[in-house]
Design a protein around this nucleic acid. Sequence first.
RNA 1: GCCAGUGUAGCUCAGGGGUAGAGCAGCGGUUUUGUAAACCGCCGGUCGUCGGUUCAAAUCCGGCCACUGGCUCCA
Length: 650
Amino acid sequence: MSEDLITLTFPDGARKTFPKHSTGLEVAESISKGLARNAFSITLDEDVLDLDRPIDRDGKISINTWGSEDGQYTFWHSSAHLLAEAVQELYPEAKFGIGPPIESGFYYDIDFGDRSFGQDQLAAIEKKMLELARTKSEFKKREVSKDEALNFYKEKNNEYKVDLISELEEGTITFYEQGNFTDLCRGPHLPDTSPIKAVKLTKVAGAYWRGDVNSKQLTRIYGITFPKQKMLDEHLEQIEEAQKRDHKKLGKELGIYMMDSMVGPGLPLWLPNGTVLRRTLEAFLRDEQKRRGYQEVITPHIANLELYKTSGHYPYYKESQYNPMEVDDDEYMLKPMNCPHHHRIYANDLKSYRDLPVRLAEFGTVYRYEQSGELNGLSRVRGFTQDDAHIYCTHDQLKDEIKHVINLTQYVFNTFGMPVDIRLSFRDDNESKYGGDSEYWERAQKEINEVADELELDYKIVEGEASFYGPKIDFIIRDAIGRKWQLGTVQVDYVMPERFDLTYVGSDNEKHRPVIIHRAPFGSMERFVSILIEHFAGDFPLWLAPVQFAILPISDDFNDYANVCAEKLNSIGARYEVDSRSEKIGAKIRDAENRKIPYMFIVGEREQEESTVSVRRHKHGDIGTFPFDEFLGKVKEEIDSMELPPKPKK
RNA sequence: GCCAGUGUAGCUCAGGGGUAGAGCAGCGGUUUUGUAAACCGCCGGUCGUCGGUUCAAAUCCGGCCACUGGCUCCA
């Protein structure tokens, strides 16, 4: 093969040769004009490159358009520069920090000096961005020396860029220029600004320079852009849809929980409907755990400070705990975690290897002093209940126990129809971040990996995400509208057995250290309920719905028959309400629909005579008339099988 | 904790220096109803809170509190 040719492999596996130094644009053009027109950048192996960059090596290539993640990143990265250019035009004194693309859009961190910057100013910037985009300014790349780069920003008094450049190596520094704006940037970028057709700046936030609380706080402007106005409209609609599902809104409407300033921030009060929901979830997990050999325990809400000193959590997490209180001559603290209590229960008597594994479970309520700005509805609170359990086992049992736990966790999420991504969180090279014997770590990570393979899990390994005391398996679920939430974790712990001097007597008659697995499929009941509300948009499966049935008599004359039906529902342990108000049936239906009650039974003369009910399913309308006893059997089955709600019809 | 924003009736929201408004909900009546809102009447507010400016503050200014969106943190 000639040295002047390169071979590129396309995503579909096709290989083609091109003259060396062909650009991405030329490669795209060779496929189709349309592709070339829509191309933003290319990805060559792992590198995302400008379209006009000459390609001088063989590799796997993909042409990035709006349809690919790399393409969107290129688009939003360029949009961040456009935002900066607009800001520079309107606020010449502004100094720029960093402006990367993110999962959904981009942001730029900007120092506006002493000037206060708020939402109101965004509209003008949006307008300016569109105006600048229409000028079709090219993104021009330029290599600069370190000195030149430093001088450029020193002259502008921009300490942030100087800070960034000082960490870069000579020969790798590039500037991108569009219009009157020049930015330190690795690229790549769009050929020019013209594809940016729709702009929305979404929010303003304070953000510390380099994420360091001790550094200056810059103003972060978030935004998102699209190549078509229609896409922006759709995006805004999606946001609206998400807001309709917001658990804070639905939690109030459906009577799930309340917050009260007299009780205190971050301390939710569970209302009757929410309590049904939570207790039902707890019963579900409790039954499952009983079946799987867990023993339930109960521990108090406060404990002597010594306990947390022994565990090492105090003073390490002092900042995020409620202050200790003095009791007699000792100090006591609201419990920030359940583990130490369970460890003491384990240590209560001498354990033989025959006793292991010991699986102690508790719906344990804990209190943590979260920073005020962090509190958020039910998903971030200061008092919450973990579905906690600690499994004490031998090293030989570890693999099986991890399997058990993964199995349980998957079963749980499957029940709610939530797809799960699995992440193995291992340690990195930074020894000082982790406790325990590295030999054990290696072994545990290997075993976790083996278990994941044996269970044929689809997982990814992330180094550096392990906890202080051991590697973790994190379960990341996706809800009904595709948002990701990190829920249950499984953590292997080698540190606490040492700290609490936990032992068991082996078959060799010697004392050994057990290994501990911490796990909580839901994480916390509060957070899980918040996610469930949003996942189901308040339309809970029948088995979970706080009120499952509404009986709606057509008029007062049929209240008696309604009560007969109610009595039957009662006998199967169902949750129901009879709406005997003097309202028209339409109004009763509307109320029941708004309250998202899964089934409505409408009873009038016909139904009374024939011992039937006319059934409406929430969101689906009239589904027909059934003999009541027969239908009762059906719904009982739906409850027992924990069926998911039917998909809403279009 | 920091940045930005919000706070008016139980709920959703209007008003923006000169006597506090609507719809829904609630209560009292009338109506007895067939698949997403019957009608009439009534009740309901120290306009988050404390202070300042003013003849006069829900409205302007400041402190505090709570909430929202981010940042930081998350055993």
